[in-house]
């Protein structure tokens, strides 16, 4: 039972965190709050990839001369780490695009609330 819990609780927390992000996108009216929800959702996906790359009793992905490389179980899997490394940096660049769109919307309409924006557009 304890083994099942320690093997699966990371997935449960990842799902809860993803649902917190989706909650922020669906229910919050302010556009900056929606952007914060988007960032939380993005990071939760990164956390899922890092948690499935894990191995018990394994060392980090830098080669140590004292630890033999023949036993693959001695080292973590480096491929998901690499993919997520680029995903984080691309994520902050696209968040920058979202910020510039927010500033452009505020300069034109004077508000960031969703309901007021819909009224002002018509």
């Amino acid at each position: 039972m304890l083994e099942f819990f320690t093997g699966h609780y990371a997935y449960w927390f990842t799902v809860i965190l993803l649902c917190v992000g989706v909650y922020g996108i669906m229910f919050k009216k302010n556009l900056i709050k929606k952007t914060i929800g988007l960032a939380i959702l993005q990071i939760s996906v990164v956390m899922y990839w890092v948690s499935i790359a894990n191995k018990w009793d394994a060392t980090v992905t830098t080669l140590d001369p004292n630890i033999p490389v023949d036993q693959v179980a001695n080292y973590l899997n480096p491929l998901p780490h690499t993919l997520m490394l680029t995903a984080i940096v691309v994520g902050v660049a696209t968040l920058g695009v979202a910020f510039t769109l927010l500033i452009a919307i505020y300069n034109r309409y004077g508000t960031l609330d969703e309901q007021e924006l819909l009224e002002k557009i018509q």
Binding site: I43, V50, A53, L76, M84, V89, V92
Partner: peptide, 15 residues
């Protein structure tokens, strides 16, 4: 803590 030191470094600097 999960062993992904590169990803942790990136997240600490950028995030």
């Amino acid at each position: 803590a999960m062993g992904a030191i590169d990803v942790g470094f990136t997240e600490a600097v950028i995030g």
